[in-house]
Design a protein around this nucleic acid. Sequence first.
DNA 1: CTATATTAGGATAAATTTGTCCTAAATGAT
DNA 2: ATCATTTAGGACAAATTTATCCTAATATAG
Lengths: 144, 144
Amino acid sequence: MFSKACEYGIRATTFIALQSLRNRRVSLKEISQEVGSPMAFTAKILHQLAKNDILESTKGPSGGFQISMERIHTIKLADLVLAIDGNSIYEGCGLGLRKCNASKPCPVHFKFSVIRKELKTMLQGTSLFELAQDLETGVTHLKR
Amino acid sequence: MFSKACEYGIRATTFIALQSLRNRRVSLKEISQEVGSPMAFTAKILHQLAKNDILESTKGPSGGFQISMERIHTIKLADLVLAIDGNSIYEGCGLGLRKCNASKPCPVHFKFSVIRKELKTMLQGTSLFELAQDLETGVTHLKR
DNA sequence: CTATATTAGGATAAATTTGTCCTAAATGAT
DNA sequence: ATCATTTAGGACAAATTTATCCTAATATAG
């Protein structure tokens, strides 16, 4: 469904959000360890998320990544996915047709539209705060 | 969502189903032309579908691919997807965790379960016949 | 101010997916 | 029976995604 990069990105960002709620900035090293993702690859992803105003990054000793309290509430899963995987998951035709729309649909167009709309709604309705809180309470986990 | 191979596979199979309804066996060449897919690559996919008892193939002059009337009704989209992409779309964790389940879920586990269940239901409920008929009536299209 | 820790970012490698090419095997047409 | 046509299938090439490595830039601690 999502690319590996996106999976890592969501896991990492959820971890960062949790630590930001505790007022802790976290380093790439800690993130990739806690999330079980390859460090250098994770660096690229976090860099991209920072460019997209999803994370704040700070260089130097005691540097790392963090998210402001306000952003933890306003950032939705949909924003992460968009920043990493682009909008293909929302836009693209289920059968890969370049021009597929309601007036010239592929055979699965309408059935897919339903599913995709629900996916979109779910992603747009899920905030980082929600994800981080489930982690905090120990309900959910991030490590493979 | 699906691999390119799966997209081509679904498009090709839908076309074969339509022609089989008209009692026509179709060659790889015609299929890849009508569906807009690379011929040699499509050959591999059709071969795999044949091995999985989704298509019947015949060599030699006037050979090609076809599907029995009965199978056109019993084969569901879910069977195609399973044969080509495996069960990762049904089974795998949305965030790529190896062991993610209801008792030790990832942060998006339950929200994804809902979507995936609906996707599964849709795929299992959509027959080749249905897809082919929408093509027949000109409601839907297959070419990029 | 200096040394050190940390992110930024380019180059490159490995793995996977997608796509091509060619020969073998089979089968129907003649 | 022979030949042309078509699928089967292996080898390989290209493209994309995933992953690693190294140096530069930068900020903080001391």
